[in-house]
Design a protein around this nucleic acid. Structure first.
Lengths: 139, 139
DNA sequence: CTATGTGCAAATCTTTTGCAGGCTA
DNA sequence: TAGCCTGCAAAAGATTTGCACATAG
């Protein structure tokens, strides 16, 4: 992990009141170390962190992702019933989901224009609008 | 189950090449017996069928819902990572998801207007666009 | 009669939790 | 030092599967 990635990870964690432990910094540097947005599964992030040589248990990866979400640093995206995906980008934006290889990416939000939303039932308000564009390989 | 519901269930099953067994007809009549669209979970449908006095095992409910989807009679909707929802309505339409009580309903499709979709990456095509409007009780 | 379908229990898979020890502030 | 964290193993919950029996065509 570069000094820059470490710095970024600390700043990111610093937005919450979570302690900057070794494990959290290791995970954070993979998530936000280069300033780019990431979409990960717990399993995938666990493999990634092991790949860097750091050792973090799978349970801690799960707990940490959950803690990051609770702290408002990430959000969970539901696209596949069998796995949870976590996104470092916090605003409400559309996703592409590549069904062939179970891969989640951001769709350019600027290009999506929703002209009218269905009217919300009495007594309710919109918490979030999820738009998932499911893609498959052409041909 | 009324004769009408039975008739409707048979016609519905007849669209596929699935055999109209006692269990499938029992489930189908709960799903399409009154001609209305339904959103169910396996667990919920299982309780419902037991409530009518018919006996169908939970495993069979799971297998049957899966079979109905494979046969193109229903579709799975992914709104909650921990449970699968199944929808008898087959066209591409938006959903309301009541987060407080984990309840899924159709949103009036006519009222949703998507003016522009993000441009799809080279070599891919859109399989489906899922729009889930998550609602919470106001106040 | 033969291929399908069903039920049960056990297996699988993802995610959470209890608890003992470790570490941050 | 006190409280938060972590790791492990076990638990939990949803869904699938193997296999023997039942049933539709």
């Amino acid at each position: 992990m570069t000094p820059e990635a470490l710095e970024r990870s600390k700043r990111w964690l610093g937005q919450s009141d979570l302690r900057p432990t070794r494990q959290r910094l290791a995970l954070a540097s993979l998530l936000v170390g280069d300033g780019q947005d990431r979409h990960v599964t717990a399993e995938g992030l666990h493999e990634a962190v092991l790949g860097t040589g750091d050792k973090v248990s799978l349970a801690t990866v799960y707990n940490t992702l959950r803690a990051f979400c609770d702290a408002g640093l990430m959000q969970e995206v539901t696209v596949d019933g069998s796995r949870s995906y976590f996104d470092t980008r916090m605003d409400d934006h559309p996703h592409f989901y590549l069904e062939d290889d179970s891969h989640l990416t951001d769709a350019p939000a600027a290009e999506l224009e929703i002209k009218a939303l269905p009217s919300v039932p009495e007594g309710y308000e919109i918490a979030k609008v999820d738009v998932v564009i499911r893609l498959r390989k052409k041909g």
